[in-house]
């Protein structure tokens, strides 16, 4: 698990480690924006801690917070690459284990890393996406559900990346209002 208790602190923390503990929660929320779930974000935070404890802390770090976010960003980039590989693997695995029951696709077992969402909840989520204004809905679907980057989504829709970011922002707001009253 990620470091959190004081026992994990060394007697004399480097300024970098100190800066890490000061903004641990913020880093977690920053990482979680790009991970599947909070647990994955916690794992990455753990990786970040390991990395910074092993870096040469003797060197004076002028801007520890900036360095931490830079490290976090790099971790996210690596993580997204490997997550794409593993999700492709798990999609293949799921195909292999899928069976047909009365015309319905049934997975024999849900993928281990996947939370199980009820059929009912899926319908609610799909309704919420279907009710977004068309362009906003399309941006959300391409970017969030089909996994295109914002730039790819912008290209697919023939609008600017900034426009996609705005659509996603508005969609997130609408969706979180509707789905979590």
């Amino acid at each position: 698990m990620a470091p959190s208790g004081p026992s994990e602190r060394r007697a004399v923390d480097s300024p970098l480690v100190e800066a890490f503990f000061e903004r641990r929660e913020n880093l977690l929320l920053f990482l979680a924006a790009r991970t599947r779930c909070m647990a994955t974000a916690e794992d990455l935070l753990q990786d970040l801690f390991v990395k910074l404890s092993t870096t040469d802390a003797g060197a004076e770090v002028k801007a520890p917070a900036a360095l931490l976010y830079r490290m976090a960003t790099n971790l996210l980039i690596d993580h997204v690459r490997s997550a794409q590989r593993s999700s492709r693997r798990s999609a293949e695995w799921r195909r292999d284990t899928r069976v047909q029951l009365a015309g319905e696709d049934v997975s024999q077992e849900p993928a281990a890393d996947e939370a199980i969402i009820s059929r009912e909840r899926i319908r609610l989520l799909a309704d919420a996406v279907a009710d977004l204004p068309p362009q906003m809905g399309r941006a959300f679907r391409l970017h969030k559900l089909e996994g295109l980057s914002q730039a790819q989504t912008a290209q697919a829709m023939g609008v600017s990346t900034k426009m996609i970011e705005q659509h996603i922002a508005a969609a997130v707001r609408r969706l979180s209002e509707r789905l979590r009253p």
């Binding site: 920053f30 931490l68 705005q166 996603i168 922002a169």
Partner: peptide
């Protein structure tokens, strides 16, 4: 806060994410 939260979540998905985003987010 809800509007800004949406904007932040969208911005953090950006292709050119870097530490400045992190510091401003914080």
């Amino acid at each position: 806060a809800a509007a800004e939260a949406g904007a932040w979540l969208a911005r953090l998905q950006g292709d050119g994410l870097d530490e400045r985003d992190g510091l401003e987010f914080e």
